[in-house]
Design a protein around this nucleic acid. Structure first.
Length: 260
DNA sequence: AGACGTACCTGACAGC
DNA sequence: TGCTGTCAGGTACGTC
């Protein structure tokens, strides 16, 4: 599930509960802990308070008066707020108890997980392989970045070392809205293409953040791609689909011509 | 550098 | 009913 908009939603959930003392940390499944033991996570956080959280790409950083919790949500993770008496979900993996309720890190597949950095600097080092956040990318930044890559547009957009935050759905949605074929080499985009692509990226991100997900609206590619015989929401042409290094890529052959 | 395959996990669904 | 294969919005790593 989680791409930039989802993680931005989780960041806002956490931001509503900064400044409240952490009563306890329950690790219900240590399988999600990465490079930290349950004991260390507990002792490092108990009694401290979360401060203003930050997001970079699909990572959520939660500083807690010294140590920093780093959350990545893989394909199925989430962070949600619950009253203490709400029954636990079977995929709740880590729970932070606060005075009036608890934050729950839930993740079915456990493809990513929870880390702990001792300091803000150590947290930053964990993220230093990431490219700039997609939300802070100007049109010219995007142009410069894409012109430096000879790979396919879709692959380049989803490479976290190039741009942080775009996932499989977002990349397809952005290309579709910009009417640019995702299989084109990134560096072959023209100046008008780049302007259009940047506008599409801003618009798709903005709308998705409002919904805290890439919304499967009927007027979006995302709302069409998983239907039985998907057709383009704009022109009705049957959508094309193929696998690109393991990920399904969907586009409209009419609106987004010039494949290969 | 870039494209692929494989691996890490769990669950839903189609088809036999 | 139960099995198998495939797919799912994540990334890392080895190989060509």
């Amino acid at each position: 599930m989680p791409e930039l908009p989802d993680v931005e939603g989780f960041r806002r959930v956490l931001a509503e509960h900064t400044g409240e003392p952490i009563a306890s940390v329950s690790v219900l499944d240590p399988g999600v802990l990465r490079g930290v033991t349950a004991r260390r996570l507990r002792t490092a956080l108990r009694g401290r308070r979360f401060e203003e959280p930050h997001r970079h790409g699909k990572w959520l950083l939660a500083p807690a008066q010294g140590p920093v919790v780093l959350l990545h949500f893989g394909m199925t993770g989430s962070l949600t707020w619950h009253r203490p008496d709400e029954p636990r979900h079977r995929h709740d993996r880590v729970v932070w108890k606060l005075p009036d309720g608890e934050l729950r890190y839930r993740d079915m597949r456990k493809l990513q997980g929870v880390r702990l950095a001792a300091t803000a600097q150590e947290a930053d080092e964990t993220l230093e392989t990431l490219g700039p956040d997609a939300l802070n990318l100007s049109r010219d930044d995007l142009a410069a970045t894409l012109s430096a890559h000879r790979g396919r547009l879709k692959t380049t957009l989803t490479d976290q070392a190039v741009i942080a935050g775009l996932g499989n759905l977002l990349a397809d949605e952005i290309c579709w809205r910009a009417r640019i074929n995702p299989l084109r080499p990134a560096r072959d985009l023209t100046a008008p293409d780049l302007t259009t692509l940047h506008r599409a990226m801003r618009r798709v991100l903005h709308d998705s953040i409002k919904a805290a997900r890439v919304p499967p609206r009927r007027t979006w590619l995302t709302g069409a791609r998983d239907t039985p015989a998907p057709t383009c929401p704009r022109c009705g042409t049957p959508l094309e689909s193929r696998r690109l290094s393991g990920r399904r890529t969907v586009w409209c052959p009419h609106c987004q011509p010039d494949g290969a």
